[in-house]
């Protein structure tokens, strides 16, 4: 499969969105709203859930499963208050020493007027440093599109996993083709050059694990993620926060 075909798969409308992962992997989800500063961003869903007997804070970028939902969720392009809500919930998790699991699926942070007025860049920067310093384990899973800084803002984690057909990139292939070659038609070339597939991520050391996707549905992927989280989170929780932070620093320092 070509890199561009993977991009199309990662964007496919029938692909499960963030909420589906929360609902199929965890139980007892209680959604919590708002950033306590400006508003509640429907593009970012977060709250409390259980993984077996373990309380977990879960956060997902939600694109919306149908047209009406997609409009309401701004197609999964968060505004600053989405990132700020996520960070608020992560700090809450830190206080109660709950692990955090993030599901990332976005074409990017929203490029709108209000987003700039309310400090999109500052919100992303604050999430990056905030997650870097979080004294509780974080695992981020790229489940669809991982679009640039808007994805990284929820993917500064102890471990980063990616679905087999998800992608992660510094810029969309369309953006790359038009900026670099002034030719939007070269999008397929751009997708190949950017090295954005899950397999590239594994090769470049950007992710620890690639989650296989089933032939028919995502049931096997949900199961695999549940098993892997049940395995990894207790191990990370057992580490003293200082060594957790030191490994997280080293993980990103290596790039």
């Amino acid at each position: 499969m070509s890199a561009y075909e993977k991009v199309l798969l990662a964007r496919a409308k029938d692909r499960p969105t963030g909420l589906a992962y929360i609902q199929n992997i965890f139980t007892d989800f209680i959604e919590l709203h708002g950033d306590r500063r400006f508003g509640d961003d429907p593009a970012v869903v977060g709250g409390l859930a259980a993984l077996g007997g373990m309380p977990v804070t879960v956060i997902a970028i939600e694109k919306g499963a149908d047209t009406k939902e997609r409009l309401r969720r701004n197609f999964g392009m968060p505004n600053p208050e989405g990132y700020r809500k996520a960070l608020r919930l992560m700090k809450q998790a830190e206080k109660f020493r709950r692990p955090v699991v993030c599901f990332v699926d976005t074409s990017g942070a929203y490029c709108g007027l209000g987003a700039e007025e309310r400090g999109q860049a500052q919100a992303i920067a604050e999430n990056i440093t905030g997650m870097m310093a979080l004294r509780t384990p974080v695992i981020s899973i790229l489940v669809g599109e991982g679009g640039s800084g808007g994805a990284l803002a929820l993917a500064v984690a102890d471990q980063v996993w990616i679905l087999e057909n998800a992608v992660y990139s510094v810029i969309s292939p369309e953006g790359c083709a038009s900026i670099l070659w002034k030719d939007p038609k070269r999008v397929k070339d751009a997708a190949g050059c950017l090295r954005l597939t899950a397999q590239d991520m594994e090769e470049l050391g950007v992710v620890e694990r690639v989650i296989p996707e089933g032939e028919k549905d995502f049931a096997a992927a949900y199961q695999e993620i549940r098993t892997a989280l049940s395995d990894s989170l207790p191990q990370l929780l057992a580490l003293p926060p200082e060594s957790l932070l030191a490994s997280r620093y080293a993980r990103f320092r290596a790039f």
């Binding site: 920067a125 990056i128 997280r248 620093y249 990103f252």
Partner: peptide
């Protein structure tokens, strides 16, 4: 912005630099 010719590795610089800034600040 990021240098797209270095793909995802350029995105990782945002995390790497921020980590060092945070330690300096702390």
């Amino acid at each position: 912005g990021a240098r797209m010719q270095e793909g995802i590795l350029s995105l990782m610089q945002m995390a790497k630099t921020s980590a060092a800034v945070k330690r300096h600040s702390d």
